[in-house]
Design a protein around this nucleic acid. Structure first.
Lengths: 347, 347
DNA sequence: GTGAAAGCGCTAACAT
DNA sequence: ATGTTAGCGCTTTCAC
């Protein structure tokens, strides 16, 4: 019930019988202070439970707030969670705190979030750009010294640092792995929307691998899904084609779950699979799942390191950091295509 | 290069030739304003790219900041990611933003984070309490009207709202499922540290189920691990016992990964498994993994809803919301114990 | 319908 | 070693 105010610097000062500035000095270890005053101030702070109002401090000091604004598509996606963790690990010792929000890949929600973050005067803005979002409004902020980093995909309308995976090479290598094991009809299940940078790059890598092997590109083997259920559905459709694929390449972790789940459900062990993104339990599947793993930790660290360098005055040209992916061969891509298939219906 | 200041209210006012207060009125739809002034102000705002400084506003208005401080053990853990997503979904329409940090289950890091959040005058504090953390320092804040919600585990030294899963019942049901399928030697692999609330509750559920079935509790069947690798290691140890378990119960998602991975690696299909927490690809395993699923979405929503109610003035007693878990039977717990085991060594 | 002055909680710049 | 004054960018209060 006691709705008493939170104590302020002035309250502490009054308690001790000194000026506010003296309290401020003690707390920020700015300027000198006699041992005795220091003790008294500290005691009063503890007694009153005083915590300096960071917003008031920031406003006076004028600099940016000690926060990093981070916009990702989905807080629940483990990949972005891992990226966020890595960012936090990297910036923690600098005292920066994460302000996070999910855009659901909606440009309007993304804009809402970045606007809010800017209104809070974040020290750094990190964004996984949504398809259709324009970032030219950030130019002025960048000019004024706000580090802006695009994650996972390049942004539009703004030249700034970005960190992406080696999507094309990674997809190429995954598909080449399938080809090396005798597959020639390889389905590609990609993200949605189809304009998504990662999807296009990975599809390009897929096409490159096919071309190198002299396999012609068959549009009917390319499908799309935005969630696990959708991926399961298109997997089933692809396998129902007249001349179905003997192998599937998954364009990301969510699609991977859909494909693998659908193959398990329909007991299709004859279909080879390689996925972009490592997923939990990949090694416990039968066969174990071969993946093109992104290095979420490295992505987060690279983004954070770059941003910190900018904060420290690095004014060099905007750079794009490409974090290598790694093909982890576990077995699911290795089956030659025997054409075998479970009999129709449950025996 | 142009390190020009960010525009302030005063800049906009000067541009239009009105007072700062008038601009403020237009922007906040406070008080009246002639249509013409309104147009001019809006134009100037757009022209200068003015964004009100939220911190300055907050300081003047005096109320809490429109942020929620959320402390979780690990941003990379999909379970907590899902909880965070649900919280965000629930509070977004109220205009609240998430300030997040991971404690790594370290009480000091947790305290650092909560202190920072309090210094930022968050509207709500949500914490997954670390073992050993004391929360009595939050009493004064709660008294002053700050909603504090403990997630996943109860906090210590502070009576406030908390949201937990039905850990004991859930674990009981999972273990009972194993017992129903003929298992009598059932290993338990729990979290670390052993004082962890969720671990103790789940262990209690395990023991209850054993007791009901007249199976005596065997300490040697209880093991602990804090990460996936550790869980794999203890799994292998448990299975190496003279009188080994025929079934294993995993105390959480991370442990589940370790157990399942280790069983797959050693090709031990004869060991039944039920896990606390659903995991990706659980249904694609052979056999599919039976789990006691926590409802992360519901947990997040319950926490957020409670906090919002408190913000709206709900002063009723602190409550503990228990979110039901759900036993999802998929097969891995159903094998009777034939005692079969892969031969020693690789054939 | 609009403005001037004061003040939120804090610190910079100058006193003393 | 400490205090005073002014002011960060905004809103409240009260005047016009």
């Amino acid at each position: 019930m006691a709705a008493n105010r939170r104590p302020t610097l002035a309250d502490v000062a009054r308690e001790v019988g000194v000026s506010a500035k003296t309290v401020s000095r003690v707390l920020n270890e700015d300027g000198p202070a006699s041992a005795e005053t220091r003790q008294q101030v500290l005691a009063a702070v503890a007694k009153l439970g005083f915590q300096p109002n960071l917003m008031a401090r920031n406003i006076r000091v004028g600099g940016p707030d000690t926060t990093i604004g981070l916009v990702i598509p989905d807080l629940g996606n483990p990949f972005f969670g891992a990226v966020a963790r890595s960012i936090e690990d990297t910036v923690r010792e600098r005292g920066l705190t994460l302000l996070m929000g999910s855009s659901a890949d909606d440009p309007d929600r993304e804009r809402d979030l970045t606007d809010k973050f800017l209104a809070r005067r974040v020290s750094v803005l990190m964004v996984v750009p949504s398809v259709g979002a324009d970032h030219s409004h950030l130019k002025a902020h960048r000019t004024r010294g706000l580090p802006v980093v695009f994650l996972d995909r390049p942004g539009a309308g703004l030249s700034t640092d970005s960190v992406v995976s080696s999507n094309r090479t990674g997809a190429h290598d995954g598909v080449a792995h399938l080809i090396a094991h005798g597959h020639r009809r390889i389905g590609f299940v990609g993200d949605l929307p189809t304009q998504l940078y990662t999807r296009r790059e990975r599809l390009a890598g897929y096409r490159e691998a096919l071309r190198e092997a002299g396999i012609s590109y068959d549009r009917s083997l390319v499908a799309n899904a935005h969630d696990q259920h959708g991926a399961s559905a298109v997997t089933s459709q692809l396998l129902g084609l007249d001349d179905p694929p003997t192998a599937l390449f998954a364009g990301n972790n969510i699609v991977a779950l859909g494909i693998v789940t659908e193959l398990a459900r329909s007991k299709r062990k004859d279909v080879a699979v390689v996925t972009f993104d490592d997923v939990e339990l990949a090694e416990a599947l039968e066969p174990a799942l071969t993946v093109v793993a992104q290095d979420a930790e490295d992505i987060g660290r690279a983004a954070a390191t770059t941003a910190l360098a900018r904060l420290d005055g690095d004014r060099s040209r905007a750079r794009t950091i490409t974090v290598p992916t790694r093909l982890i061969i576990r077995g699911s891509g290795e089956r030659p295509a025997p054409g075998g298939q479970a009999g129709p219906g449950p025996g």
